Amino acid sequence: MAENPTPTLTDSPSEHVPTDNDGQETPVLTETPEAENEGQERDADGLRAELKAARDQAARYRVKARETAEALKVAKTPEEYQAVADRAAELETDLHRERLARKYSLPDALAARISGADDEARDADAKALAELFHGRGGGVGRGGLDPSLTPTPSDPAELAASIPRARR
């Protein structure tokens, strides 16, 4: 039997390369999660769909950032300028949270809970959330049994011998 190799995301001939307004390609950073859902295998179609969703969301953030930058250029008063600058900083923070959520395989509900004053603090917070979220099994295993425990003997003589006798 011949095994078919699993196609990777780079094998796709119809891969979309985003471009900026000048028609030049913009680099797309793809980050692989360090703990890939702890043993759960994902199929290639699911990964492609997740990558497409992440790229679409990043494209929306880039469009919003461009619109905000354009609004910043036409701002005339310091209050308008500050409002637009605050909005741009907020969008950058949201984008960083989304990237961290993808990097650490966190659901969207936890992505909004990533907090921190700067990029390093948000990265540390995302890593802590990922450890809590992915480590909820307690390391016992999928069946709920602890593999470090010794098995209970099934032989009646061994079972009777394991019962402690009271000495008086």
Rank of each mutant, 00 (worst) to 15 (best):
D94R: 08
E70M: 11
Y61F: 09
D86T: 03
K76I: 14
A75P: 01
A85W: 07
A71H: 10
K76G: 14
E80H: 04
P78Q: 13
L91V: 09
A83M: 06
A88Y: 01
P78H: 10
V84K: 00
R87Y: 00
T77V: 07
A89L: 09
K73P: 08
D86K: 02
K76P: 09
E79W: 08
V63N: 12
K64N: 14
T93E: 07
A65S: 08
A89I: 05
E79R: 09
E67D: 09
A69I: 14
E80P: 00
E92Q: 13
P78S: 13
E90L: 11
Q82H: 09
P78N: 14
L91D: 04
A65I: 10
L91G: 02
V74H: 14
V74S: 15
A88T: 03
K64T: 11
L72F: 13
D94E: 15
A88N: 06
V84M: 05
L72V: 08
V84H: 00
E90P: 03
E67H: 08
R62P: 00
T68E: 07
T68P: 02
T93H: 08
T68I: 11
A71L: 13
L91K: 04
A83S: 08
Y61I: 01
Q82D: 10
V63S: 11
A71P: 01
E70L: 11
V63K: 14
V84P: 00
V63P: 02
E92L: 12
Q82N: 08
R87K: 14
V74E: 15
E92H: 11
L91E: 04
K73L: 14
K64S: 13
A71D: 13
T68D: 08
E79S: 13
L91Q: 04
Y61R: 06
E79L: 12
D86H: 02
E90W: 12
E90V: 07
A75E: 04
E79P: 04
L72Q: 10
V63D: 11
L72M: 15
D86L: 02
R62E: 05
L72S: 10
R62I: 02
A71V: 03
A75Q: 04
D86M: 07
R87F: 00
V74K: 15
E90G: 12
T68C: 09
A88H: 03
E92W: 07
R62Q: 06
A83D: 02
E92S: 13
E67K: 07
T93P: 01
T93D: 07
R87S: 00
A69L: 14
A85T: 12
A83Y: 00
A69T: 15
R87L: 00
K76C: 12
E70W: 10
L72A: 11
Y81R: 15
